[in-house]
């Protein structure tokens, strides 16, 4: 308890308060000078490109009442984006819910080969499929936790990973509450749905939207006044996954059930 001994009490910092304030204000001024040297963010669009990302704001809409669980989207995503085997940027979950008791939920191989009938032994009253993918959240936990700035959101609302800069630490994989990220076993960097950024910025739909035979998946653009998806968001009852986490997902669902997380 020497610290409380009155005789040995000495000031922790051997300078006066006035001196301390003087010194720290000049140090602050110095660091501000350094901050001025650092480059500032530009306000231009993607340099040299025929696409203005300030004129788009992408959203995604999934109608679970239409999905037939064929898995075309999962196969198309893998082919379009060279997704490594056993890894999924999008997948489809099956829900079979009895009147009472636990629900049966599965997603064999992410639905890449469709679904087989299962003997759940339940008297199923309610069954449906739920396609999932990155929600491209407005307030993403995954970007926040990246220690090196390899995860970022584009100005048109797509959450992307810079594989050149990623160190593969996996923090973002853990941070995503939707399980949308994985470490690519080939590149050892974080990998995720890019919302087919190479397609949507060249006037195409994402591969999964394009391939869906029943129109269960749709791409919308908030900055397009005539967009049908935005009209649905404005006039119908839509839901997002885990809204309590306040991640502000930009993938919206029609016909979601409370069993779905």
């Amino acid at each position: 308890m020497a610290r409380h001994d009155k005789d040995s009490a000495r000031p922790l910092i051997p300078i006066s308060r006035r001196e301390f304030l003087n010194r720290s204000s000049s140090a602050l001024a110095g660091s501000m000078v350094i901050a001025l040297i650092l480059p500032e963010g530009s306000s231009a669009g993607i340099a040299g490109a025929d696409y203005d990302w300030d004129r788009h704001r992408w959203v995604y809409l999934i109608d679970t009442t239409k999905c037939i669980g064929c898995g075309s989207c999962v196969r198309a995503c893998r082919a379009e984006n060279s997704v490594p085997e056993d890894m999924y940027r999008t997948w489809v979950e099956r829900y079979e819910i009895p009147a009472e008791g636990e629900a049966f939920i599965d997603s064999p191989d992410g639905a890449e080969h469709g679904f087989d009938p299962v003997a759940t032994g339940l008297s199923v009253r309610k069954g449906f499929f739920v396609p999932k993918l990155c929600n491209h959240c407005d307030a993403t936990p995954c970007i926040q936790v990246c220690p090196v700035g390899a995860s970022f959101a584009t100005r048109d609302g797509v959450v992307l990973v810079d594989p050149e800069h990623c160190i593969g630490c996996g923090y973002c994989v853990q941070a995503c509450p939707y399980g949308s990220r994985f470490i690519n076993p080939t590149t050892h960097t974080a990998d995720k749905c890019t919302l087919c950024y190479h397609r949507i910025t060249t006037g195409r739909k994402t591969a999964c939207v394009e391939i869906c035979p029943v129109g269960a998946r749709r791409l919308g653009d908030r900055k397009n006044p005539d967009d049908e998806v935005i009209e649905i968001l404005a006039t119908q009852r839509v839901e997002v996954l885990q809204p309590e986490l306040l991640t502000r997902p930009q993938a919206f669902y029609l016909g979601l059930d409370m069993e779905v997380r």
């Binding site: 500032e40 700035g149 390899a150 584009t154 810079d162 050149e164």
Partner: peptide
């Protein structure tokens, strides 16, 4: 820092 706290060229690479 071209567009924000990330490598700006990564956007074009994704495109």
């Amino acid at each position: 820092g071209e567009f924000g706290p990330y490598r700006g060229a990564a956007v074009a690479e994704h495109r």
